[in-house]
């Protein structure tokens, strides 16, 4: 049996290795911490310019006092129907305010950020978007940054920004629908509920689940001790499209 072959072929696609660790330990109890939430899942204010779904490294300011009815999604990488029902499924701002009001966390950053990480230009996110968001959050005295991705490349972009925040001296965690991407891209802490992309922060209009995911995730920032740690959360939501 003969196979026509050649020598000298080279594989054409680089397979990534995880970047070096970046780590900021948390030094305060949660009830004293200032929290910021950022998302690569394409959330922005309705009055703002929508993202370019073919790739966009710009970002939008989201005041933590804004009613969630004034937020929307522009993202082409997944079924939007869950976020259309309840924006907290990607950006759980109502839940964060409740946690602040009940004293579970200290306070919220005045300005949080939404960007559309799908197909994101890695260099731009690394050199511009990540450092800019990190600087603003640091200046607001943020202790913990929680983030969600969205689609696959969103997780990549989210982790790039997350790592910039961690490097700037804040403890960060990603709520990942796609934990392998978060891990491979070098996320410092990974919280992994069983959720589909498009409702990364939990089932729409399920306040209990969204709250539980957020609380467990924040507790992980307290308990995790090493770069790259991942914990699976016992919440499951399947989106039957």
């Amino acid at each position: 049996m003969k196979l026509t072959t050649v020598t000298g072929l080279r594989s054409e696609i680089f397979v990534p290795i995880t970047p070096p660790p970046v780590w900021t330990p948390l030094k305060k109890p949660l009830r004293e911490c200032r929290i910021a939430f950022i998302t690569a899942g394409g959330i922005h204010q309705k009055r703002q310019k929508p993202f370019n779904t073919a790739g966009d490294f710009s970002y939008r300011e989201i005041p933590s006092s804004i009613p969630t009815s004034e937020l929307m999604v522009t993202h082409g990488g997944f079924d939007n129907s869950d976020i259309n029902k309840d924006v907290n499924a990607m950006f759980p701002l109502d839940r964060l305010r409740e946690l602040r009001d009940e004293g579970f966390i200290g306070s919220l950053a005045d300005t949080m950020y939404g960007f559309m990480g799908g197909g994101g230009n890695v260099e731009k996110f690394k050199e511009e978007t990540g450092p800019a968001i990190a600087q603003s959050l640091k200046e607001q005295g943020v202790d913990i940054v929680v983030c969600t991705g969205g689609c696959g490349t969103c997780h990549r972009s989210a982790v790039v920004v997350e790592r910039a925040c961690e490097a700037a001296g804040m403890s960060t965690v990603i709520i990942a629908a796609l934990p392998p991407i978060a891990r491979q891209q070098g996320a410092p802490r990974i919280s992994a509920p069983h959720v589909p992309i498009g409702s990364n922060a939990g089932e729409p209009n399920n306040k209990e689940m969204q709250t539980a995911i957020l609380k467990d995730t924040l507790n992980l920032v307290v308990s995790m001790e090493h770069f790259g740690e991942m914990a699976t959360l016992p919440y499951e939501y399947r989106h039957n499209v």
């Binding site: 397979v15 290795i17 197909g119 230009n121 890695v122 990549r156 991407i181 891209q185």
Partner: peptide, 13 residues
């Protein structure tokens, strides 16, 4: 734009 986000040792060709 689409560079791989995950990889493993079997992806060598």
């Amino acid at each position: 734009q689409g560079q791989l986000v995950v990889g493993n040792e079997y992806m060598d060709a």
